[in-house]
Nucleic acid binder design. Structure first.
Lengths: 188, 188
DNA sequence: AAATTATAATTAGGAACCTAACTATATAGG
DNA sequence: CCTATATAGTTAGGTTCCTAATTATAATTT
C-alpha cells in the first residue's frame, strides 16, 4: 500500500545543521551555519505551507488564490477593480484575470463594465460567492488557528515580529537589484 | 515608467490585524485574531520567499528545484538515484525526472544505468555541475545569510524553534485526513 | 516456470502563477 | 483636431510542480 505518496515532507526533506555546516565548510566560507539553516528551513516551510493550503482550499472547490480573491472582495464591500485585486493579493493583473474567469464560471463573482472609465471592469461578489465564504468560514479559520496552535499567545507575538524582520530582509534582497530604489528603504 | 511591476509584495498585500479581526467578527467566530494574522503573514512570507528564490537562482541559470537537486547530489558524493533525490527534496519522482532532463541537457548532471537493478538509473554530478556549485557558493550563501541578517544570533534560535512548531502544526493538519497515521509523530 | 504483484523511472496532461505582447480606451502635446 | 503616450484588462505562451497512467524490470506466489 503506497500511502507514502501523501506524506511529501518526509524527515529526510528537512535540512539539518550538520548539512548546512558541511556545505559551508566545503567552500571555506565565512558564513554562519545557523543562518543558512534558518533560511533553508523557512524555504521548506513556505513550500510545505503552500502545498497544504492548496489541499485545504480544494476541499471547498477553491484554490488559495481564488479564496483570497473572494475574501478580499468581501473586505471591500463586494466590489473591486481587477487592478485593485491584483494589488491587494500581490499577484499580477494577468493572474487576476484567470482567477476571475474561473470564479465567474462557477458563479461566485460577476463582471460589470464601468460607467466612468470604459477600460475598467468591476468585479462583484455574487450572493453565491458570499454564501460560499459564509459556509467555509468556521472550518477555514479553525484551520488557520490550528496552524499556530502549538504556539502560546506570547510566542505568536514574538514569531510575528521575527517573521516581519525576515520578510524585510527578503524584500531588501529582491529590491537591491533595481538600481533606482524607490527611497522607502531608508536604513542604509 | 512602470517599475512597480517588480515590486509585487506591496504594502497593500500584507494582511493587517484589523483585517483579520473584521473577518472573524463578520461571522462571530471564537477565534484568536492574532493567530489568523500569524498564519496569514506566514503564507504571504512563504509566497514571497518562493518568488525571491526563483529570481535569485535564475541569475545562475538555475531554478530553486534544480539548484537543490545539484546541492543534494553534492552532499551524497555526486551520485544518487532519482527516487532518493525525490525523497531528499520532498518532491515527486515525476518532478525529479523533469529536473534531471534540464540539468542533463545543460551538462550539469548525467544519467547512468544501474548494473544491479535494471529499473534504476543513477544520476551523477558532472565536473561542470560541481564547478557551477563552486562558482555560485559565495554569492548564494551570502544571499541566504542576508535573508536573516536582521535577526540576532539569539533571535535566530528562537525563530528556528517557533518555526519548527508551526511546521509541526501544518504537518498535523495535512496528515489529519489520513486516518492511519504512520506513528512516527511521537511527541503526543 | 508462469502469472501476479511491486517498484523505478518516465510520459501525459493539469493547475497556479509568471512575463510579454495585444486590444481598447483615455489623456496630453503640438 | 489628431497623433503620441499611458493605462486597464486580456490573451498567449512559459515555468514549476502536481497526479495518474505507462513501461520496464524485479520479486513473489502458486
Amino acid at each position: 500500500m503506497n500511502n507514502d505518496k501523501k506524506i511529501i515532507n518526509d524527515i529526510e526533506a528537512i535540512p539539518s545543521l550538520v548539512q548546512s555546516k558541511r556545505q559551508i565548510d566545503r567552500y571555506n566560507l565565512d558564513i554562519d551555519a545557523q543562518a543558512i539553516l534558518v533560511a533553508s528551513r523557512l524555504m521548506a516551510a513556505g513550500a510545505q505551507l503552500g502545498h497544504a493550503s492548496e489541499i485545504h482550499f480544494s476541499r471547498f472547490g477553491l484554490s488559495t488564490g481564488r479564496y483570497r480573491l473572494l475574501a478580499d472582495l468581501e473586505d471591500y464591500e463586494g466590489e473591486e477593480l481587477p487592478s485593485q485585486l491584483a494589488e491587494h493579493l500581490g499577484v499580477t493583473r494577468a493572474t487576476v484575470t484567470g482567477l476571475i474567469d474561473i470564479l465567474e464560471r462557477d458563479g461566485l463573482v460577476s463582471r460589470r463594465l464601468s460607467s466612468e472609465d470604459g477600460r475598467q471592469r468591476s468585479v462583484l461578489l455574487t450572493e453565491e460567492g458570499a454564501k460560499k465564504l459564509r459556509e467555509m468560514a468556521p472550518e477555514h479559520f479553525a484551520w488557520l488557528e490550528a496552524m499556530v496552535g502549538l504556539l502560546s499567545i506570547d510566542e505568536r507575538s514574538v514569531f510575528l515580529d521575527l517573521l516581519g524582520r525576515v520578510t524585510q530582509g527578503i524584500s531588501a534582497l529582491t529590491d537591491e537589484r533595481s538600481l533606482k530604489p524607490k527611497g522607502n528603504i531608508s536604513n542604509e
